[in-house]
């Protein structure tokens, strides 16, 4: 994906679980905002603020999804999917922490690398992982 372009939300990204979709839109906005801010001001402070927002977002969003998994006992449905999903969440936080560490050590990640990581993670996570969870959750509700 070309990371010079804003992500425009389209129905392809909808999982069908409204709470999840709303939160995904927040992440899309955060990434779009990050790109816009960093193109004006690529200072360490800006990077730190953005990565802090991401940490905060991660705690918020992952908790929502993991709550869903627990509520509907996703693990019993598919241990493998459950573990993949959890692992992707942990990886995201770990990556963001690593980015912050690299800022601290004085060799920060470039804006392009950061945005690319965020976008590919998000798109991959939504399409390959969240949609499976959403299908399962929706099948349980109906």
């Amino acid at each position: 994906m070309d990371n010079s372009e804003k992500i425009v939300w389209n129905s392809d990204y909808d999982t069908g679980v409204e709470e999840m979709d709303e939160q995904h839109r927040i992440l899309v906005n955060t990434i779009n905002e990050a790109r816009e801010k960093l193109s004006k001001d690529a200072s360490l402070e800006a990077l730190e603020n953005i990565t802090r927002d991401l940490l905060s977002y991660a705690l918020y969003h992952f908790e929502t999804e993991e709550e869903m998994m627990q509520e509907h006992d996703y693990k019993a449905y598919s241990q493998e999917e459950y573990e993949t999903h959890m692992k992707q969440h942990r990886d995201f936080s770990a990556q963001v922490v690593a980015v912050r560490e690299s800022i601290k050590l004085g060799n920060p990640i470039t804006k392009e690398d950061l945005i690319e990581f965020l976008m590919s993670w998000l798109i991959n996570h939504i399409n390959n992982t969240d949609k499976k969870l959403a299908r399962f959750v929706n099948s349980r509700i109906k």
Partner: peptide, 16 residues
């Protein structure tokens, strides 16, 4: 809307 959601999400995280 975007900042509205983000600020609230962050506030919820801090509350947690």
């Amino acid at each position: 809307i975007a900042s509205d959601q983000k600020i609230k999400a962050n506030f919820k995280t801090l509350g947690k």
